[in-house]
Simulated scan of single mutants.
Amino acid sequence: MTPPSGEDLPLPDSDELASLLTRNGLRAVYRVLFESRGEPLTMNQIRERVTALDGTSHSQTDRRVRDLRDVFDVESWQEGRTHFYLLKGRRSEPRDRRGGLSAAARARVFQAYGARCAWCGRTPKEDEVKIVVDHIVPLDLGGPDREENCQLLCEEDNHAKQARFAEHKDRAEAISKAINHDDVHLRIGELLKALKGTEVPIDLINLVAREENRGDPTRRLRELRILGWTVTVRKEREGKRTLSYYTLEHAELWPDEGPGPVVRRAENERRRSKKQRSG
């Protein structure tokens, strides 16, 4: 891997960096990533090197890596169960997180989720995992820094989610156009429209659908046919997995009342007809 030139990155001891990162802990994390920008690091390696610098508590390093992303492009990805981090450059526009969640709002999020990870269901007390407040729609994709856009994730799943988004960073514009819609059909449909003519992997559709364990994005894709859409699928075997890729061939305008009510009426009518035939 070729390391970035670093021409656009401020030096760790520079006044410019001090003006960008006002906290010593953040500057320590930056120094570690800056000095290792040709060498991807695991979170454990970052913690060890930060501690060697200034004795910063391990428990704060994860948050500081996330905070660093407000100003700098820190790429993350997953290999097996290990997550890696690499400082790539500056963000084109610093992320604005002024205000943030209040302590009361964070407490309500913890209460709403029962201090349990929204993805795997583990808890600190029962499973000895660390729980963090996660933005369901990432801030850098236009998600609001508000309570209703927050969930609880264990640290492992939070890193996995970051890595999943990082895998599709070349599609960030298409994702940002789709992921903030209220209706799941709109989220999936707008993603397909933004990437029309290209195959969209099911893992990206699942990511944008935002249904986690509560829904079935492949069913939503089938329901688009009710609206007159044509979406083709290609399946490919990779090891023990079968991967699906979807391509939008034709899209209709969204109904004025939204796709959800139209789909529900069609499904209700289908069930009534089936019941009449069987009865």
Rank of each mutant, 00 (worst) to 15 (best):
C150K: 00
E167W: 09
V137P: 00
F165L: 11
G142P: 09
A166W: 11
E155P: 01
Q151I: 13
K161I: 04
P138L: 03
N149E: 11
N158G: 09
F165Y: 15
P144R: 08
Q162I: 07
C150H: 01
L141T: 14
F165S: 14
H159I: 11
F165C: 13
G143P: 02
V137C: 04
Q151D: 02
A160I: 02
E155Q: 06
E155Y: 00
Q151G: 00
Q162G: 05
E167V: 15
C150L: 05
R164S: 12
Q162L: 03
Q151L: 03
E155D: 03
R146N: 13
C154V: 08
L153S: 01
G142S: 11
P144Y: 00
A160C: 07
E167H: 10
R164K: 09
G142K: 13
L152G: 00
E167R: 06
E147N: 06
Q151F: 05
P138R: 08
A163G: 03
N158K: 05
E155T: 06
C154L: 05
E148S: 12
Q151P: 01
A160D: 04
N158D: 10
F165R: 15
E148F: 12
L141R: 06
E167Y: 12
A166E: 07
L141D: 08
Q151H: 03
H159K: 08
H159C: 04
L153G: 01
H159V: 09
L152T: 02
D157K: 07
D145G: 10
N158Y: 09
F165P: 14
L152P: 02
G143H: 02
A160E: 05
D140M: 12
A166Y: 10
N158C: 11
E155W: 00
L152C: 04
L152A: 01
A160Q: 04
E167C: 15
